[in-house]
């Protein structure tokens, strides 16, 4: 067994969660755990509720029923969570550097903005306003900002769609490294099975409001695709 699975330290556990949009349920009575050292892929068709689920896990969206454990105050939960969504969560008139410095100060991050900028190759763009950035650069900036203050639960919503091939490899390596070194956990909502299957330890598929979970030490691409197709046909 994998080292991370043996410890099985549950960082976040969703219990019997239900979320409705007006009267139609997005997901109903679903439960799963996120375990330290694991990377989870969240698969599902468009409109299946992946983004809603991630937002609910971040604490920004209130569940209609169910709980997120451990039950701690909202502020403490936010501190533990890094949430990268479709929106960049950045101030568009401010520069990359100013945004990073702002969020670094607010999350009491010790590293300097230069160190952070250097890593993703953002240094040469540091004085550009966020509104003038390309999508990929904006995504990298928001990823840097989200990871400030060493959160232990990473919620990543379609992170690969804006990245070029080289950045994608760097992204996979970084997330894997982050999760293992800090004993964190990551859940990635994605359609990009081809690039991300290698780093996954758990695959969640969401379909018609219900969720299926498969945990393995590692997956092959065919396995992930077949899991996805099986649940879609249910």
């Amino acid at each position: 067994m994998d080292r991370a699975l043996k410890q099985a330290e549950i960082l976040l556990s969703l219990q019997n969660a239900t979320k409705r949009y007006e009267t139609t349920p997005v997901f109903e009575d679903i439960s799963f755990d996120l375990i330290a050292g694991q990377i989870t892929l969240l698969l599902g068709a468009n409109g299946s509720g992946k983004s809603t689920l991630l937002k609910a896990l971040s604490g920004l969206l209130k569940l209609d029923k169910g709980t997120i454990e451990p039950t701690i105050s909202k502020e403490d939960h936010f501190k533990k969570v890094a949430y990268v969504a479709h929106e960049s969560h950045l101030y568009s008139p401010l520069t990359v550097k100013e945004n990073i410095e702002l969020f670094a100060k607010l999350s009491s991050e010790k590293r300097t903005s230069e160190e952070l900028l250097d890593f993703w190759g953002l240094f040469e763009h540091r004085n550009k306003a966020v509104e003038n950035l390309s999508r990929g650069l904006a995504f990298k900036t928001s990823l840097v900002c989200a990871l400030l203050g060493s959160p232990s639960i990473l919620l990543l919503d379609e992170p690969t769609s804006a990245l070029d091939s080289a950045s994608l490899d760097l992204f996979c390596a970084t997330i894997q490294d982050y999760v293992q070194k800090r004993n964190a956990t990551a859940i990635i909502a994605t359609h990009d099975i081809r690039r991300l299957y290698q780093i996954a330890n758990q695959v969640l598929t969401i379909n018609n409001g219900a969720i299926d979970s498969t945990t393995q030490v590692s997956f092959s691409e065919e396995e992930v695709v077949s899991i996805y197709i099986q649940t879609s046909l249910k």
């Binding site: 920004l60 936010f78 969560h89 950045l90 101030y91 969020f103 966020v130």
Partner: peptide, 14 residues
């Protein structure tokens, strides 16, 4: 815009 306010909340600020 960009939901920046959510970003602020996610830093755990009240």
């Amino acid at each position: 815009k960009n939901n920046a306010l959510e970003g602020l909340f996610l830093t755990g600020i009240s």
